[in-house]
Design a protein around this nucleic acid. Structure first.
Length: 567
DNA sequence: GCCGTTTTCGGCCCGACTGTTTTCAGTCG
């Protein structure tokens, strides 16, 4: 599937057009790029069937460029733009406070073509010669460059969400009359966030702004006005606050949750109905029609309520118009956790402690899945120790009366075979297959390895299919459509690994897996009792993937899960 | 460059904040 590289080429064209000041064209290319990347179907297939224009945002001209790219590997207009605009010039726009106009000015008037040159010019106070520039703007650019170099990485959801929750608690404590919530991409449960967004409603706006900019963990106040403020935390994370009136709470939450594409689409719909949508509400003329609740805002636009995790302008608005939104899975639907480690291998807690903690969550069952013998770094279980383990689990299940499934997280060897022989696997209630080593193979080799495991008669779950780590390790190369199709055909569930360092499958891939007919399972991969609470991150990805309880193994009652495991 | 319950041409989401200006352009989300 080459959607991603096609999107990258179009996205680069958008960047270059941006510098040229081609605003409308720029946004058309950017929209098309995002749309192609998010589109479930293979762009090569669409191309050969002459169906490219079915992708939203792709018209005559862009379809031609996509075809050109897929057949020749290049786009002549892109090559031309590249030759006109030095590479470093586009990079200037990454600096906060520097947009296309400033970039064009810096390049044409001062010949600046890189961030380094810009820093030197600012430090030498040479920028203030330019029209519209002064001392403060020079400083702002230097600050922007510093911020850029230190915070190039996005913040994993597992880090961002707890910090946002802490800020919400702090602001609520400091402003008893205020209503506070986090919004933005963390409310949409995106795998990682660029910044944090906080929304507040209060009769005393300046009080909320004041307590926000003076929080103990604030390093720098970037801006502070009457209704919004931006700070940089000690950790380097940018955090935005917006304060509104209670009457605008719903509209503000809707607006500030995004995504941007979703919001733009909504405003276009509002416009078509003779309405206006902004962060204060839905208006007819100057009359407020809705705004106190998010539900009211969607209703005023003729839409069913759309859950935050779906708001990516990926078809959810059309579904809301026709009343075809799915009833998304929620935490209350989760009946068990089927990927849990103990101190028998690399977990921190005993079997007994893990079971006690699981029972406190109100689950109906659990699966214990320690590592298999060849994963030496995790002290994987020998056959002898594995079978000993079985007795312990059976005994504890009997004593507690709590259903404990005896499983394994079994290594997929390089040839696709499993780490235990069949007569050992037969002893288990279920088998999770996983890859932890030799991750750099070519796509066709890796696909073959994974599909072989999926077809194995004893394999029930494929753990963290892409094996990537957020911000730290690239996902493996494989043909995921084939993997998902084979998983569907062979009754192997694909895991949404809820561990915040993984979040694998992501929501987007989970959605594709469902479209191919595969079942999914949301597991925490807990290595201590503290990890069991990660379930919400996995549920977030499932919701981003439009999944309903029927799609997810551990939303089923135990007898159906066992039936699935018997293949 | 895309697109259509005003439209096949003429629009293209909307508002807050800053800096450098004496009324607004640029940027951001």
């Amino acid at each position: 599937m080459r959607n991603k590289e096609v999107a990258a080429a179009l996205s680069e064209m958008a960047d270059l057009l941006d510098v040229k000041g081609e605003l409308q064209k720029q946004s058309a290319y950017r929209w098309a790029a995002r749309s192609i990347e998010a589109f479930g179907e293979d762009v090569e297939r669409l191309n050969s069937e002459k169906r490219l224009k079915e992708i939203p945002g792709v018209g005559e001209a862009i379809a031609e460029k996509v075809t050109e790219y897929l057949t020749t590997g290049r786009i002549s207009l892109l090559e031309e733009l590249r030759s006109q605009i030095p590479r470093g010039v586009v990079g200037l726009m990454a600096i906060p406070g520097v947009g296309p106009k400033t970039t064009g000015l810096l390049w044409h008037e001062m010949g600046i073509t890189s961030i380094d040159e810009l820093r030197q010019a600012a430090e030498g106070h040479r920028l203030r010669r330019l029209k519209g520039f002064g001392e403060k703007k020079e400083e702002k650019i230097l600050r922007g460059i510093r911020f850029l170099t230190e915070s190039s990485k996005r913040i994993p959801l597992g880090v961002a969400l707890p910090i946002a929750e802490e800020i919400v608690r702090y602001l609520e404590g400091a402003n008893p009359d205020a209503r506070v919530s986090f919004a933005g991409s963390i409310r949409r449960m995106k795998e990682s966030a660029g910044d944090l967004d906080i929304l507040a409603a209060s009769p005393n706006r300046s009080g909320v702004i004041q307590s926000f900019t003076t929080m103990p963990n604030v390093r720098e106040v970037v801006l502070a006005g009457d209704t919004k403020a931006t700070v940089i935390l000690d950790s380097g994370i940018q955090t935005d606050l917006r304060v509104l009136d209670e009457t605008s709470w719903g509209a503000g939450l809707q607006y500030f949750t995004g995504s941007k594409d979703h919001n733009v689409h909504l405003r276009t719909i509002a416009q078509g109905m003779g309405l206006k949508l902004n962060e204060y509400g839905v208006f007819r003329e100057d009359q407020l029609v809705a705004g106190a609740t998010e539900e009211g805002v969607y209703e005023a636009l003729g839409l069913h309520y759309i859950e935050p995790e779906m708001r990516e302008d990926a078809g959810e608005i059309e579904a809301a118009q026709s009343g075809k939104l799915p009833r998304l899975v929620g935490m209350a639907d989760i009946r068990g956790d089927l990927h849990v480690h103990t101190n028998a291998t690399d977990g921190a807690d005993t079997l007994k402690a893990m079971i006690d903690a699981v029972r406190q969550l109100g689950y109906e069952y659990v699966g214990i899945s320690d590592h298999s013998r060849s994963l030496l770094v995790a002290r994987g279980l020998s056959v002898e120790n594995l079978l000993k383990r079985k007795e312990e689990i059976r005994t504890l299940a009997k004593e507690t009366g709590f259903p404990i499934l005896f499983g394994t997280e079994c290594e997929i060897l390089t040839n696709g075979e499993l780490d235990y022989p069949e007569d050992v696997l037969r002893e288990l209630d279920y088998v999770i297959a996983a890859i932890h080593s030799k991750l750099t193979a070519e796509a066709d080799v890796m696909t073959e390895r994974v599909v072989t495991a999926i077809k194995h008669p004893y394999v029930n779950i494929l753990a963290h299919p892409f094996t990537g780590l957020v911000n730290r390790r690239e996902p493996i190369q494989m043909d995921f459509e084939t993997v998902a199709e084979q998983a569907a055909e062979n009754n192997t569930a694909l895991e949404i690994n809820a561990f915040p360092d993984r979040l694998d499958l992501s929501g987007l891939r989970a959605r594709l897996a469902k479209e191919k007919g595969a079942k999914l399972v949301i597991n925490t991969d807990s290595h201590s009792i503290n990890h069991l609470g990660f379930m919400r991150f996995g549920v977030g990805q499932a919701r981003r993937g439009w999944l309903v309880p029927d799609d997810i193994l551990n939303c089923w009652p135990l007898d159906l899960v066992q039936k699935f495991f018997s293949r």
